[in-house]
């Protein structure tokens, strides 16, 4: 078959967060983010949901290789985090959008952790507008069923626009 759409949210006026739920099987799920912006320069963050409730506990681990044009590629890692930072300077409009493909594994499995791979590309919104992308993954180290994914901004700014879509890969 291919990709079956589970949920989508196209933001056209500012919101504090976007939550996509509906993960209810052992299938692999994919999230596509397109042309996402912030109300002020900020970083996008990920949390997962369980029973529709956003999980803000300190159980997120992540690692990524950071591709960029202005310097030697970096490494980003952390354990026992309260969220997953998956961008580096989202802009407010025009050209500094965030675009990403995320795969979700084991979310519906109540006895396993929830895993994520992420591949993203953006123009980092700073003085030089640097091409930037995290390539890596993350995990929420709590063995219980997860049913969705939640996006928000580190600095408390709003998501001003963007399309966030959850698909099941079948």
């Amino acid at each position: 078959m291919g990709l079956l759409q589970v949920a989508t949210n196209t933001v056209t006026s500012a919101v504090a967060s976007v939550t996509l739920t509906g993960i209810d099987s052992d299938d692999v799920y994919m999230v596509a983010i397109n042309n996402a912006f912030a109300s002020a320069d900020d970083d996008y963050e990920i949390r997962i949901t369980k029973g529709g409730i956003v999980q803000s506990d300190a159980n997120y681990d992540r690692a990524s290789k950071d591709l960029k044009t202005d310097a030697v590629f970096g490494n980003t890692a952390g354990t026992n985090l309260t969220e997953i930072d998956f961008s580096a300077g989202i802009g407010t409009s025009g050209t500094n959008s965030h675009n990403e493909i995320i795969y979700l594994f084991n979310f519906a499995n109540a006895s396993e952790y929830s895993f994520i791979t992420m591949e993203n590309v953006t123009m980092r919104d700073d003085a030089n507008d640097i091409l930037f992308g995290f390539q890596g993954g993350a995990v929420h180290t709590v063995a219980s069923a997860s049913d969705g994914i939640h996006f928000f901004l580190t600095g408390g700014n709003n998501i001003s626009s963007g399309t966030f879509t959850l698909y099941k890969v079948v």
Binding site: N35, T95, N99, E119, N120, V121, G133
Partner: peptide, 16 residues
């Protein structure tokens, strides 16, 4: 490859 936003003339075109 993935290509993002190619047809929009108000955003850059990105590639993975």
């Amino acid at each position: 490859l993935y290509i993002f936003n190619p047809f929009s003339s108000s955003s850059y075109t990105f590639l993975l």
